[in-house]
Design a binder for these strands. Structure first.
Length: 418
DNA sequence: TCTGGGGTCCTGCCTCGT
DNA sequence: TCTGACGAGGCAGGACCC
């Protein structure tokens, strides 16, 4: 599997046993900071903080030199500067990061068509089908690391495993500039001693709830009763964690992803009481949201706003429109109307507008019902419709797809489908 | 220390239609 | 006509991810 190299990371040697693996998780090392060094080599070896030095900016990324001082992503820049006063603060260049990301993803796609980008700096790859072309998963991982370094000029870390979850955990442990291969037969051995917080989906709250019940490692999760896990984190997360702790993760690498919402939000440099100004900001954000919808040829059925007050208390309000729209004025009016419903008049630090329940322009709902159809055929028709019309019909497809097992089928009018 | 911006998913509560 | 059970959807809040 792998060994410690003295830096805290665990890495595999070239040629490590990769039996039963097929999934790679590739993660760029300190991506934003690496791109800045690429564009300005004089920054090489220095502690770098990516973020704005003024206002209420937080750290978007930090070089490993800065991380040694305790600087972390999402930390207020002012705090980071106190921890590492010698750090160079660099304003983020998001377009440039997108550009480099495209170069890296192009390398992945030259190796396998089964690439699932997770964000600008990481992706899952399924390399099962390219063995004859490029070699075993471990060999492909090594090839990717070399090509990203040679062709783009930055380093990345790769986890190789039988499942997405284990591959993701492995790449994290291998960072920076490392590779960790977990052969399928050693999955449980790999998972068992690791802290629950290392699992994908366990954040500070879930970790605290688990640890309060003495559940500290992934082995503890495996050995805990379902009732205990349910009480700690709720039934949905509990079931997921129990499966992942057993090394089970049936998720495949998905190359297509459909956005479910688009939004914009903005934190002011200073808290704002002026409601006229806040209304105009909502309108401006609504315009930006609408512009994105129109570019994507989508419209939205539900508008939501977010208001965060000076004490960080956050309210959201949402409203489903009579008619879907991609018109900024209409979205803005809905946002302002929602804002008027909020009675609290304290200073505001953030406002946001989001469009939800997206559908293609003109892609109206479709009725799928035939009393003579059996459920299997209805499900097939739904699948066809989803393929043809995209996201607009997916929610309905799920409802119909549940079938008679969860209660008697109802007429589509019960689902708002007519 | 004092908390960005872009998202997804889950939960609980309430309302509505059958 | 009324009532209760049930399922589904809308809405609000929160956790989590990068």
């Amino acid at each position: 599997m792998g060994h410690g190299d003295g830096s805290g990371r665990i890495v595999s040697a070239a040629g490590a046993d990769d039996t039963g693996t097929r999934i790679l998780h590739v993660d760029m090392d300190a991506f934003y900071a690496s791109v800045e060094v690429l564009d300005d080599p004089s920054l090489s070896g220095l502690p770098i903080i990516i973020g704005s030095p003024d206002g209420r900016s937080v750290v978007s990324s930090a070089s490993y030199e800065a991380r040694r001082y305790g600087v972390r992503s999402a930390m207020p820049v002012a705090h980071a500067m106190r921890l590492c006063p010698t750090a160079r603060i660099v304003m983020p260049h998001f377009h440039r990061y997108q550009e480099v990301s495209r170069q890296v993803m192009t390398i992945f796609e030259s190796i396998t068509p089964l690439v699932e980008p997770l964000s600008v700096d990481e992706a899952f790859l399924d390399v099962q089908g390219v063995r004859r072309l490029w070699g075993s998963p471990g060999q492909v991982a090594q090839l990717i690391r070399e090509r990203v370094q040679d062709e783009v000029g930055i380093s990345c870390s790769v986890g190789v495993a039988a499942t997405k979850h284990v591959a993701k955990m492995a790449s994290t442990i291998a960072k920076p500039d490392g590779m960790l291969v977990v052969p399928a037969a050693r999955t449980l051995e790999f998972l068992s001693p690791r802290p629950v917080r290392a699992m994908w989906g366990v954040g500070p709250k879930a970790a605290e709830a688990l640890e309060a019940r003495g559940i500290r490692t992934i082995r503890d999760i495996r050995e805990s009763s379902k009732e205990m896990l349910d009480r700690a984190v709720g039934p949905a997360l509990s079931s997921r964690l129990a499966q992942l702790a057993r090394g089970e993760d049936a998720r495949s690498v998905e190359t297509e992803r459909v956005e479910k919402s688009v939004g914009h939000e903005e934190t002011f440099d200073h808290d704002v009481l002026d409601r006229t100004f806040l209304r105009s900001e909502l309108l401006r954000l609504a315009d930006r949201v609408a512009a994105r919808l129109r570019r994507a040829e989508w419209e939205t059925a539900t508008i939501s706003i977010k208001i965060r007050f000076d004490d960080f208390r956050t309210l959201t309000r949402s409203q489903t429109l009579a008619e879907p729209t991609a018109v900024g004025q209409r979205i803005g009016e809905a946002a302002q109307a929602l804002f008027e419903q909020i009675e609290r008049r304290d200073p505001v630090r953030l406002v946001g507008v989001r469009a939800e329940k997206l559908r293609p322009v003109g892609g109206g709902g479709i009725a799928l019902w035939d009393d003579d159809e059996d459920w299997r055929r209805v499900e097939g028709a739904v699948d066809d419709a989803v393929a043809r019309f995209g996201n607009a019909t997916i929610t309905r497809a799920r409802h119909l797809g549940r079938g008679p097992g969860r209660g008697a089928p109802q007429h589509p009018k019960a689902h708002g489908l007519d």
